[in-house]
Amino acid sequence: MDETGKELVLALYDYQEKSPREVTMKKGDILTLLNSTNKDWWKVEVKITVNGKTYERQGFVPAAYVKKL
């Protein structure tokens, strides 16, 4: 869990989004888990830094590609 009590997951593999509802992740990324009720796709939040500014983006990743921490 992070400092706000949200559950975290670890990306076990790289994943490139294939639709606007998904998010890209790299092996080793730590993501915030938002919803894991679907056994195949989990909703996560990723933080992306571009030119020194951090953005948060929500989307789905394959559940088999992440592990709860």
Rank of each mutant, 00 (worst) to 15 (best):
V44Y: 00
Y15V: 01
D40L: 12
L10W: 06
M25G: 01
K6F: 13
K53M: 14
L69Q: 05
P20D: 13
M25P: 00
A11G: 03
D29R: 02
T32E: 10
P62S: 02
Y55T: 14
K6D: 09
K27V: 06
N51C: 12
K68R: 13
W41Q: 03
G52T: 07
E45D: 04
L31S: 02
V44L: 03
M1Q: 15
Y65M: 14
T37M: 10
T37W: 08
T49E: 13
K53H: 15
K53V: 14
R57P: 01
N35V: 07
L34E: 02
E7C: 12
G59S: 01
N35M: 06
Y55P: 03
P20E: 11
D29V: 03
T32R: 15
S36C: 09
D2E: 14
P62L: 03
L33I: 03
M25N: 00
N51S: 09
I30N: 02
M1W: 09
W41V: 03
Q16L: 12
T49C: 11
E56T: 15
D2I: 09
V23C: 07
S19Y: 06
Y55M: 13
K18E: 06
Q58H: 09
D40E: 12
K68C: 08
A63L: 01
E3K: 08
Q58V: 11
G59H: 01
A64D: 11
T54N: 10
P20G: 09
Q16R: 09
L33K: 01
S19K: 07
Y55F: 14
T54C: 10
K43D: 04
L12H: 02
E3A: 10
T54K: 08
S36M: 07
W41H: 03
L31N: 02
F60H: 04
Q16A: 12
Q58Y: 07
G5A: 15
M25W: 01
R57L: 06
M25Q: 01
Q58T: 10
E17K: 13
E45V: 14
L8P: 05
V50T: 10
A63F: 02
K68H: 07
E22D: 05
L31V: 06
D40A: 10
M1I: 11
K27R: 10
L12T: 04
A63Q: 06
D14R: 02
S36H: 10
T49M: 13
E7A: 09
I48K: 08
V46I: 15
K53Q: 14
V9L: 11
S19N: 13
I30L: 08
L33P: 00
L12Y: 03
D29S: 06
K39G: 09
L34G: 01
A64F: 08
N51K: 09
V61P: 00
Q16H: 13
L8A: 06
V46M: 10
R21E: 13
K53A: 13
K47E: 11
D29H: 04
W41C: 06
L69C: 10
L8S: 06
Y65G: 06
E22C: 06
V50D: 09
L33E: 01
L8M: 11
L10E: 10
V23K: 01
V23L: 11
F60V: 07
T32P: 15
R21Q: 13
E17F: 06
G5H: 14
K6P: 13
K39T: 11
Q58L: 05
T54M: 12
S36A: 12
K39M: 10
E45G: 13
M25F: 08
D14T: 04
N38H: 11
K43L: 15
S19H: 14
L31Y: 08
Y13R: 14
V23R: 01
A64R: 14
D14M: 02
T32G: 08
L31D: 00
D14W: 03
I48L: 12
G28C: 08
